[in-house]
Nucleic acid binder design. Structure first.
Lengths: 225, 225
DNA sequence: AACTGACCAATTTGGTACTCGGGTCAGTAT
DNA sequence: ATACTGACCCGAGTACCAAATTGGTCAGTT
């Protein structure tokens, strides 16, 4: 319970003022605990706020899992990337993380133990994702490190171009659709996928997501009611 | 003559030490002229170095024009983007500009009169590029602002991902090939293009490029004597 | 055993003196 | 007259120090 309250306070202050301007004492008072208590759960300010980002990512992942269980077609790359893009842009912290907004996160993006773990988990999950898709004939290429890179590169631009002037004229969904079009053509076979393949792939990915979700949750401090 | 020498000195110092660490006086002495002379050609330090970047861009564009005249297939999006990617990564200044290396360029990227002109010219050229391609049946979509955005987004990621750790394992050409694959599938028709269409499109684009090249050259100070 | 907040060291901040470098222009050279 | 120069000006940035703040600890309280 207490750890979650501390994370709540930290998340609120982080989104409002940014990493640099928030003190650990403020977080503690915001959560109604003493400063020392914070250090019973996390070894440093940096790790505390990294945990905030991790929890945010876990929630996003959980939402995506739900979406995929509701509609298995969400497992397809163009749908998955579209959904992820919109979800990230809708969350202040995730957006700051992906667009590299250092005004909000300071140097939090670079190097924290849990940050590195998160990056590794994400990479591994992406690899598994591509393997699953390929296993059900939903990919137009062989999986591998290069394909992972190619997908990352194709998607990354959408986030990086976020701030630039004349891209603001388009709505968020228009940009999401653009990303979906690019991803579908560049990574999926031309012909429509077989419904059974989609269903099975979604089921496989649900397991992968659950696994990563468990891993992320485990990295957050254990609740001690 | 003199303006070119000043640009030479400025370019050399810029690539070696970065915008912040180079003084106008150094540039002047490097070019063998007085500091005041520099201000006969450019109104400010910022515009001087913006001109360095503009000249670099003009050279790159000129090279690309040559490449396209040698092999008209270079007009195709996947070839054009691949070539551009490699050319930019090969030039320290262009690379710094596109990967957002503020250590080298400082705040030079943001807002300088000629910088804005360059961005506008680039946008317009991209639009014309897409129109030309479409006119010869080499595009799978209708041109327009959204398609321009989609292409930018698809390409931008390759530059933005440059610094990140585990992308270094791949060679530059492997990354360029990855970009080419994505672009070809996402923007070009599935069937191979007709040689005549390619030849004609290349001829059209040669004109567009020459026009932009002339514009860029005109923005550089007029040579006297 | 869980938690706290006074305490310490280290970093950050605020203020000040001073250097340095962008930009100007009276003057020199041609 | 024209092309060019470099000494000069002044504001932005740097260096520096004292004061304030804050990340992190731990003896002590609940």
């Amino acid at each position: 319970m207490k750890a979650a309250h501390i994370l709540d306070a930290a998340e609120d202050l982080l989104t409002r003022y940014g990493y640099r301007r928030v003190t650990v004492d403020e977080v503690a008072r915001g959560a109604g605990v003493g400063k020392g208590t914070v250090y019973l759960y996390w070894p440093s300010k940096r790790e505390l706020f990294a945990a905030v980002l991790t929890r945010d990512a876990a929630r996003l992942l959980s939402d995506q899992l739900t979406a995929m269980l509701t509609d298995p077609a969400e497992v397809l790359p163009h749908r998955s990337m579209r959904w992820t893009y919109l979800a990230i842009m809708d969350r202040p912290l995730a957006k700051a993380l992906y667009t590299g907004d250092s005004a909000l996160l300071g140097d939090l993006t670079t190097a924290s133990r849990s940050g590195a773990l998160f990056a590794a988990g994400k990479r591994e999950t992406t690899d598994r994702y591509l393997s699953v898709l390929h296993g059900h004939g939903l990919l137009s290429d062989e999986p591998g490190a290069l394909l992972s890179y190619r997908l990352s590169a194709a998607v990354a631009g959408s986030f990086h171009l976020d701030g630039t002037p004349d891209t603001a004229e388009f709505g968020l969904t228009a940009k999401a659709d653009a990303l979906a079009t690019t991803v579908r053509r560049a990574f999926e076979p031309a012909e429509d996928p077989a419904p059974a393949a989609v269903r099975d792939a979604a089921a496989d990915m649900a397991d992968v997501y659950r696994q990563w979700l468990a891993e992320l949750t485990r990295s957050l401090p254990r609740e001690q009611s």
